[in-house]
Amino acid sequence: MRLEPREKPSLLITIAYPALAVLAVFVFAGFLVSLSGANPFSVFGLVLKGAAGSQFALFETLTRATPLIFTGLAAAVAFRAKLWNIGAEAQLYMGAVATVVFGTGLLPLPSPVLIPILLIVATLAGALTLLGPAFLKVRFGVDEVVTTLLLNFIVILFVSLLLEGPLKDPMGMGWPQTKKVIAEAQLPKLIQGKRLHFGFILALVAAVAVWVINTRTALGYEMKAVGFNPRASRFAGMKVDRVMLKTALLSGGLAGLAGLSEVSGLKGNLTLDLSPGFGYAGIVVAMLALLHPLGVVAAAIFVAGIFVGADAMSRSAQVPSYIAQVMVASALLAMVTAVMFTRYRLRWK
């Protein structure tokens, strides 16, 4: 058995295989749902209704998609340069920490000044969090997968320390949470009375910006070249290490913005459950989007829809909402396999 590259994959195959992958995910999830005794079709119906069945549901899905767009972009940018940033969770939390440090009254400034400042500090906080592992990678050859993963645990503990110490809300009745950000630090809601906020627009702008960087700038070209073949890139005169560090700053910064967006746009303060794994889900989003920044938006909405829909479904049907995580994880595996088969064919010999 061996793999043979396809000369030119037909359009049919490039569409049909990923579609088959999505179908396979639903068949598998349907099987799991049937184990609980529920009817898979009615359960998927409830998921769809919960994700997109009403105006409320749609807004809820877009709200949930917002941090996933940021973390999805963070993974997409890094993976394209083969910088394996698995630490978006940590970078998100550090962005959130920066937001509450500067946004809870330290800087009494009007919104048009304060919000840009918060954008900068949250980006920097996320960027610097990934700069460490990236530096260790280029300087000492330490595998960034392990360091970014371990850093997730360290940062969560660090946040917990802050929430019980220096950043603890004195009026919080003893709960480990920070003060709310001041009104000037809040991102406006897009529609009065809805949870969807300006962070969603920021996420869309970020996606377009990454797309422009990827396709129209020297850095975008260098990141792609370094990811494709670092040795050839070095031979062509690129400063590979420096490209890696720039990629890390960009990727970490994007994940940091997810933290700002969740705090300033949605939650108002920082708690330990700010992110239910947005950093990890961002990896799935990026892979489903085939690392394309605009595809990230679509993939984030799809993944958010599954999460929001499954939450709504589990309230009425007796199916654990963990089905959403299973679907998202199996979608990742199914999609990378499907994409591989659009590029190679299997020869039995």
Partner: peptide
């Protein structure tokens, strides 16, 4: 990517 996928899965 596959390894992270297996862990999540």
């Amino acid at each position: 990517v596959t390894g992270i996928g297996i862990t999540l899965f």
